[in-house]
Simulated scan of single mutants.
Amino acid sequence: MYRRKNTARVTTDEINQAKSVSVLDFIDANGIDVKREGRGSDPYFRLVDHDSLVIKGEKFFWNSRQEGGHGAISFAMTYYDLNFPEAVKRINEHAYAPSINHISEVKKEPFRYPHYFEVDNTEELQNYLVNDRKIDQRVVNWCIEKDLIVQDKKANVVFKWKDMKGNIIGADRQGTQSMDNKKQHTFKQIVPNSAETGGFMIDVGKNIDKVAIFESPIDLLSYWSVKKGEVQNTRLKSMSGLKEQSLMDAIKELNQNGQDVTKVISCVDNDEAGNHFHERLSRLLKKGALEDQRPTRTKDWNEEWKHLQRSKENSKNLSYGM
């Protein structure tokens, strides 16, 4: 059975104590310099030493690493590269003065999938995924048949997040039209109130013993287009970013269903943020449990798939003397 390396345990009281600390109070207690930006009553803050890390309320996003989160625990894990118990203990090392400026936790509404927004037409979806992103037509057709991807009224591709019972617990929306003159700038959204550790997911085979993780549904489908018959007894899981807990929850769900996960396949982007995340996993997982299948020639698996297709086409043209 898959297990993480042993880590220090924390109690519920310790966790609740850490959760009560605001991100800015934790930053202040650790001597991290920030500068206030924005005007009026809706400011945001930027780290001085890492100016791509922006904080607004209890949310933060580290643009250069494409990582983000909510709350002091998540911030401590990201900033100091800690696991969950280590982050809780790091936060609770400090004393915090009561503050009327703490931002109270907003109660999250349950996820409600907007079925009424779907359309039967898949023309824009097919054109975008097959022609623009070069996903294998058979992969796209299979996902449509399984009701995993649909088109909405605004011609977006909707990637449904389903649990093992088939319940929709969240979704990604991916625009099919450019938002400006740069083709790569398309609308992207995680549908509000989606499960925090959910993600677009496909199980290949019945006796799942591997979990392959991706940063986006497009990369997942690209990888499957490349590998096709090679992928066996594997859960393909998009984290919609870089979320360690999304992986852990996928493994936990499989274990609870009697599936013994022995291998995690890292298919995250070949960039600074993806490499940092991969290295963190290599320290957290037991030896031999992590398999590196990050793209080698390009940044992500969609670019890798396109590169392979171009190379194949060039070889074919050369063989015909073109």
Score class of each variant (00 low, 15 high):
residue 6 N to H: 06
residue 6 N to S: 11
residue 7 T to F: 12
residue 14 E to L: 07
residue 15 I to W: 01
residue 18 A to W: 01
residue 19 K to I: 08
residue 22 S to N: 07
residue 22 S to K: 01
residue 29 A to S: 13
residue 30 N to I: 04
residue 37 E to Y: 03
residue 41 S to V: 14
residue 43 P to I: 07
residue 45 F to G: 02
residue 52 S to R: 12
residue 53 L to D: 09
residue 54 V to C: 12
residue 62 W to R: 08
residue 65 R to N: 07
residue 66 Q to R: 10
residue 74 S to D: 12
residue 74 S to P: 00
residue 79 Y to I: 05
residue 94 H to N: 13
residue 97 A to V: 14
residue 98 P to C: 07
residue 100 I to G: 07
residue 102 H to K: 12
residue 104 S to G: 06
residue 108 K to H: 00
residue 108 K to I: 07
residue 109 E to Y: 04
residue 122 T to F: 03
residue 123 E to P: 02
residue 131 N to K: 08
residue 135 I to H: 05
residue 137 Q to K: 14
residue 140 V to L: 01
residue 142 W to L: 11
residue 149 I to W: 06
residue 159 F to C: 15
residue 160 K to C: 08
residue 163 D to M: 10
residue 166 G to N: 10
residue 171 A to I: 11
residue 178 S to R: 15
residue 179 M to G: 02
residue 179 M to N: 14
residue 181 N to Q: 14
residue 182 K to V: 15
residue 184 Q to E: 11
residue 187 F to Y: 12
residue 188 K to C: 06
residue 190 I to V: 11
residue 192 P to D: 11
residue 193 N to I: 02
residue 199 G to T: 04
residue 199 G to Y: 04
residue 200 F to H: 04
residue 203 D to E: 04
residue 204 V to W: 04
residue 207 N to F: 03
residue 207 N to K: 10
residue 207 N to A: 08
residue 212 A to R: 15
residue 222 S to G: 08
residue 224 W to H: 12
residue 225 S to P: 07
residue 226 V to R: 11
residue 226 V to T: 11
residue 229 G to A: 14
residue 229 G to S: 14
residue 232 Q to L: 07
residue 233 N to P: 03
residue 234 T to C: 09
residue 243 K to L: 01
residue 249 D to M: 07
residue 250 A to S: 12
residue 251 I to V: 12
residue 252 K to E: 10
residue 253 E to G: 01
residue 265 I to T: 00
residue 266 S to E: 02
residue 266 S to T: 01
residue 269 D to R: 15
residue 271 D to I: 15
residue 273 A to R: 12
residue 278 H to C: 01
residue 280 R to Y: 14
residue 282 S to G: 10
residue 283 R to K: 12
residue 287 K to E: 14
residue 288 G to P: 03
residue 292 D to W: 12
residue 293 Q to D: 09
residue 300 D to Q: 10
residue 301 W to K: 05
residue 305 W to T: 08
residue 309 Q to M: 10
residue 310 R to N: 09
residue 311 S to V: 06
residue 318 L to S: 03
